[in-house]
């Protein structure tokens, strides 16, 4: 069980992506890395923004981990939303493409390109659900993303 969001969670997610024939086919021509900003919700054990990153290329995920904001800002696409919105996405309760069009998630990058890859995006969302996940806001207070208990 990996805590979302954490490096462990991203490692498990990368494995799932690379094991998906459906994703490989849907994203066969996709080129570009993607950063995710899980925006702070102090009342949900997320005191600061957390940045995650996936290096996606031609149906393959070449790397994925938590990154610092300076690194994340370099990604070709950045998607931002409050942490709990992402939790809705992972639960299948919020379609990320619709969420972008509704202002629930914000995209920095070329929206039409993202829209052309709806199937790949949907597959990425489906794959998150296959990762055994514990959510950071459901853990005892003091657990910090990427650093574990007490920030040690």
């Amino acid at each position: 069980m990996a805590v979302f969001p954490s490096d462990e969670w991203f490692a498990a997610y990368v494995d799932r992506i690379n094991g998906s024939a459906d994703y490989r086919e849907a994203a066969a021509t996709w080129e570009g890395d993607l950063a995710f900003v899980f925006q702070a919700e102090p009342d949900r054990n997320v005191p600061d923004d957390i940045w995650g990153w996936l290096d996606l290329w031609h149906g393959e995920c070449r790397a994925g981990r938590l990154v610092d904001p300076l690194e994340g800002e370099q990604a070709r696409y950045v998607i931002l939303a409050p942490y709990s919105r992402w939790k809705q996405v992972l639960a299948g309760d919020l379609d990320p493409i619709k969420g972008m069009m509704q202002g629930k998630l914000k995209l920095r990058g070329d929206l039409p390109t993202i829209l052309r890859y709806v199937r790949a995006a949907n597959e990425l969302v489906q794959l998150t659900m296959s990762v055994p996940t514990e959510f950071i806001d459901e853990l005892p207070h003091g657990w910090q993303a990427g650093r574990g208990e007490g920030g040690a």
Partner: peptide, 18 residues
Amino acid sequence: VSARNAQTAVAERTEGRG
């Protein structure tokens, strides 16, 4: 808003709409 995400807090008071 130093303790709560503004979007989430407003959504909670408006049945998710804003």
